[in-house]
Simulated scan of single mutants.
Amino acid sequence: MLAALAASLFPGACEVENSLGIDAPHPAQGARAERIAAAIADRWAECTLFVIHADGASDPESAQRSCVDPGVEATRCAYPSLAAASCVPVRETEAWMLVDGEVFRTLLGSGAQPALPAEPEREADPKLTLGRVLKDGGMRRRPERLYRLFGEEVSLEALRTLPAFQLFETELAGAIRAVARSQGWSD
């Protein structure tokens, strides 16, 4: 998604390296804000854009204020040019995995008819729902082992139907623009 979004914003003028999953250096100490700042500081020399994730736990605005914003503010004290985007699903990221039936047909067989919720972001426990859908389809592997596949295969068009994903994509576009401005580009 990052490469496609960058290319749409800056056609022919962007290079996007592979994404890295990072966390605070071990042993992780301190409050979440300090751990976010430490993780970014640890990778500052090799990354130019950071995505900070927090589960929304049915109150994404509060999760943003309490789990993401303090970490961004703490980091900006040391790195004022920080380009960051928040990724805060309404409840959990697993809800975003429940939006595209094609991924389930890839996993469960082309004839599979997974019973996906009409509004995945309203699921009270998306992890439980994901596990149930996979189990009902005959999948015996734990859902956590399939997250990478979902991340690579879920349709962006399907994700764009979800309000929390729309907000994430808007923030990501803003972070890409910030990186471009720091490199002397204008949009």
Score class of each variant (00 low, 15 high):
Ala112Glu: 00
Ala95Glu: 04
Ser58Thr: 11
Arg91Glu: 08
Thr93Gly: 12
Phe104Ser: 06
Pro70Tyr: 01
Ala85Gly: 14
Leu49Gly: 07
Arg43Glu: 14
Glu61Ala: 12
Glu17Gln: 14
Pro70Lys: 03
Ser58Val: 05
Ala39Met: 03
Ala124Tyr: 00
Ala115Lys: 09
Ala118Phe: 00
Gly30Pro: 09
Ile40Pro: 05
Ala115Gln: 12
Tyr79Ser: 00
Arg35Asn: 01
Gly21Leu: 15
Cys77Glu: 15
Arg91Lys: 13
Pro25Ile: 05
Ala118Asn: 03
Thr106Leu: 10
Ile52Ala: 00
Ala39Leu: 08
Pro126Thr: 04
Ser58Asp: 14
Cys67Met: 12
Ala74Lys: 12
Ser81Cys: 03
Pro27Leu: 03
Val88Gly: 06
Leu98Gly: 10
Leu128Phe: 10
Glu119Asn: 13
Cys67Ala: 15
Pro89Ile: 12
Glu92Phe: 14
Ala39Glu: 07
Leu20Cys: 02
Ala33Leu: 05
His26Gly: 00
Pro25Ala: 01
Pro25Tyr: 07
Pro60Lys: 07
Met97Lys: 07
Ala112Arg: 01
Gly56Phe: 02
Cys67Ser: 11
Asp125Ile: 01
Glu123Pro: 00
Leu128Arg: 15
Arg32Asp: 13
Val99Thr: 14
Val16Asn: 14
Leu107Asp: 03
Ala84Asn: 11
Pro25Val: 08
Leu116Asn: 08
Ser86Leu: 15
Arg43Met: 02
Trp96Gln: 06
Phe50His: 11
Arg65Tyr: 01
Val68Leu: 12
Cys77Val: 14
Val72Glu: 12
Pro60Glu: 12
Gly111Leu: 03
Val51His: 00
Asp23Leu: 01
Gly131Cys: 10
Ala115Asn: 06
Pro126Glu: 07
Pro89Cys: 12
Ala54Asn: 00
Thr129Gln: 14
Ala33Phe: 06
Gly21Phe: 02
Ser110Asp: 11
Asn18Val: 00
Leu82Pro: 12
Ile52Glu: 00
Val103Cys: 09
Pro27Asn: 02
Gly71Pro: 14
Val68Asn: 02
Ile36Lys: 03
Phe50Cys: 03
Gly131Ile: 08
Val51Phe: 00
Gly71Cys: 04
Ala45Gln: 13
Arg122Thr: 07
Thr129Asn: 04
Arg76Gln: 13
Gly71Arg: 04
Asn18Thr: 10
Ala45Tyr: 02
Glu17Met: 10
Ala45Val: 05
Gly21Val: 13
Glu102Thr: 15
Tyr79Ile: 12
Arg122Glu: 13
Val99Arg: 14
Gly21Met: 06
Gln64Met: 15
Ala74Phe: 06
Asp100Phe: 09
Asp100His: 07
Ser19Thr: 11
Asp100Leu: 07
Val99Tyr: 09
Ala28Thr: 02
Thr75Lys: 03
Thr75Asp: 02
Cys77Gly: 05
Glu34Ser: 12
Asp125Tyr: 08
Ala24Gln: 03
Thr75Pro: 08
Gly101Glu: 15
Pro25Gln: 08
Pro89Asn: 15
Leu128Cys: 13
Ser81His: 12
Ala41Arg: 14
Phe50Glu: 08
Leu107His: 00
Arg65Ser: 09
Ala124Gln: 08
Val68Thr: 02
Val68Gln: 01
Phe50Tyr: 15
Ala112Tyr: 01
Ala37Gly: 06
Gly109Glu: 04
Glu61Tyr: 05
Val103His: 07
Gly56Ser: 02
Val16Gly: 13
Ile40Asp: 07
Ile36Trp: 02
Ala112Thr: 02
Met97Gln: 15
Leu107Met: 07
Ala78Phe: 05
Leu130Ile: 10
Leu128Asn: 11
Pro114Ala: 03
Pro117Glu: 02
